[in-house]
Amino acid sequence: MSFFDTYGERLIDAIQIHLFYVLSSVLIGFFIALILGILLSRIPRYAKIIMPLLSIFQTIPGIVFVGVLFLYLGMVPATVIIALAVYAIFPVLKNTYTGLMDVKPEYIEAAKGCGMSQIQTLLEVELPLATPSIITGLRMSTIYTVSWSVLAAMIGLGGLGEFIYIGIASNNNAMILVGAIPSAIMAIVLSLLIDVLRRFAIPKGLRSLK
């Protein structure tokens, strides 16, 4: 109790900051990835070249990327959010592209036969059918981002990583757990919420088609 009397308020602030980084970066990354995934599904010949190039960003260590942005942007939340959003893009992008490419051609032809335009076919047939794959990418991206957000503490921008790094530096296991356990709980809770979203994201009439 004395530990939480001392660090309780600081922990609550760290959780809020950590959650802010996760939600804002995943939201930005999701919309960018969704748009790119749709565009690449229209040019699959070039997507085979572009996708591996975009995946290169995933191979850059997070601490390096955050450090480079820190040199240009300084110690501001945008530094962390931009870095995390870039990392959040690829899981959603890959699954969006895969989901759209897996939509059976006969469904697209049936939509055209009903007089739907390309935009209507995309919005009313392709995206709903690709939703399970897209949501899976969103869940992966969110879970990864919860762990990547720990890097914010390395440039003095708070979050739960602050407790972890202090604990490592001072060989204090309790401090490490105070940062690690809420991070794990946050990842689990957000994953469960995304699973709930997945259940309601697909129109009933399209659930049995794919």
Rank of each mutant, 00 (worst) to 15 (best):
1 M>H: 13
2 S>H: 11
3 F>G: 02
4 F>G: 01
13 D>T: 12
15 I>M: 14
16 Q>A: 14
17 I>R: 14
19 L>E: 12
21 Y>G: 10
22 V>Y: 09
22 V>F: 00
22 V>D: 05
25 S>C: 01
26 V>L: 05
27 L>Q: 09
32 I>K: 03
32 I>D: 00
32 I>S: 06
40 L>D: 05
41 S>V: 12
47 A>R: 07
49 I>E: 04
50 I>H: 01
54 L>I: 06
54 L>W: 07
57 F>E: 07
58 Q>D: 01
60 I>Y: 05
60 I>D: 04
63 I>K: 05
64 V>G: 01
66 V>D: 09
68 V>S: 04
69 L>C: 08
70 F>T: 14
73 L>S: 08
74 G>V: 12
75 M>D: 13
79 T>F: 09
82 I>W: 04
83 A>W: 02
83 A>N: 07
84 L>Q: 04
85 A>G: 02
86 V>H: 03
89 I>A: 00
91 P>G: 07
92 V>S: 02
94 K>P: 05
95 N>T: 11
98 T>R: 06
98 T>V: 12
100 L>W: 01
100 L>R: 00
102 D>H: 09
104 K>G: 06
113 G>E: 07
114 C>E: 09
114 C>F: 11
118 Q>F: 10
119 I>T: 15
120 Q>E: 15
121 T>M: 03
123 L>Q: 13
123 L>P: 10
125 V>S: 12
125 V>Y: 03
126 E>N: 02
127 L>N: 02
127 L>T: 04
128 P>A: 09
132 P>K: 01
138 L>R: 06
140 M>V: 13
144 Y>P: 08
145 T>D: 11
145 T>N: 13
146 V>W: 00
151 L>I: 15
152 A>H: 10
155 I>D: 09
157 L>G: 12
158 G>W: 03
158 G>A: 06
158 G>P: 10
158 G>F: 04
160 L>Y: 02
164 I>L: 11
167 G>A: 04
167 G>Q: 12
170 S>D: 13
170 S>C: 08
170 S>V: 08
171 N>T: 15
172 N>R: 14
173 N>Y: 12
175 M>Y: 14
176 I>G: 07
176 I>P: 03
176 I>R: 05
178 V>S: 09
178 V>W: 06
179 G>P: 04
179 G>V: 08
181 I>T: 05
183 S>H: 04
186 M>G: 06
186 M>P: 08
186 M>T: 14
188 I>P: 06
189 V>G: 07
190 L>E: 02
192 L>T: 04
192 L>Q: 02
195 D>H: 08
196 V>Y: 11
199 R>I: 13
199 R>Q: 15
200 F>A: 01
205 G>P: 06
207 R>E: 04
207 R>Y: 05
209 L>N: 00
209 L>P: 09
210 K>S: 11
